[in-house]
Amino acid sequence: MANPTPLTPQGYLLARTRWHPLEILFWLATLLPFLVFPNYLSLASQIAITALFALSLDIILGYAGVVSLGHAAFFGIGAYSAAIFSKHVWGEPFSGLLVAAALAGLFGYATSFIISRFRHLPLIMITLGLGLLAHEVANSAHWLTGGSDGFQGVSTEPIFGLFRFDLYGKTAYAYSLAALFIVFLCARRLINSPFGLALRGIRENWNRMPAIGADSRAHIRKAYTIAAVIAGICGALLTQTTNSASLESISFQRSADVLVMLVLGGAGRLYGGLIGAAIFMIARDQFSGIAPQYWYFWIGILLVTVVMLLPNGILGGLSKLLGRWSRK
């Protein structure tokens, strides 16, 4: 028995949602790049964005157990919306972020009605198909997106009219990190909410849910829409911090990469996606010299190893180790 002290049931649940000292340490560590690695702030910004993207996938895949092979569609919609908005309306970043989030959420909501009807292989295929469709649309709508030439003419104004996006990525990282932290707080609350509990119920036992009166499809629609909103924010962040948008933002590669990161870190854990994204991005940066196909050799080896030996990702493995250690 883990907890011999008599806790009220409410006290027990409350204690489980309290901040752990390690979490505070983690967030303090995210400030380190400003002080220690000023040359890597652009990379840090990319990591923050990717981490947020992994967190968004975690909500549907890690918590609700809905596998998606096309999550980049919403990232791309966010990226292009922000780009188009900055070119044709104005370059103020927050409004661009909101528009991107809203549009991605709208598409997410629309597709959620399809997604929630499927499970298993058909679901994998539908998400893959929708993702590829989105990519094809972005590719062929050359007049709007610039197609394979990339989008031309993103212009992002300084934040609050004061902090311009500098060459070193200082503003970019501060902006992305702030977004990551705020959305993380929301996601953390969501996971600890009754809704989060219902999502875990869906993941654990889809068949039982209706027998306790739950409408799993409605839950999945909601979770999918929320995940799409967050993914849209990520896309917009990338557009605004790099002043560019390209087909890469909506590619299958991005959908696959984020899946790899999440699983590497540990799906169904709030920090899984964040840790996975950091490791993946740093490793890719370190090995940027080698050709991409060899990079994917190691990703492949890693995937096989994680699936065969570390079924709950790095965080799962660590918590198991810690559990064993503390029991001694």
């Binding site: 899946l259 790899v260 994917y296 050799f297 990703i299 096989v304 699936v307 065969m308």
Partner: peptide, 9 residues
């Protein structure tokens, strides 16, 4: 995941 990994390899 396993089989995507093998495909990458």
């Amino acid at each position: 995941l396993l089989t995507i990994g093998l495909a990458f390899i």
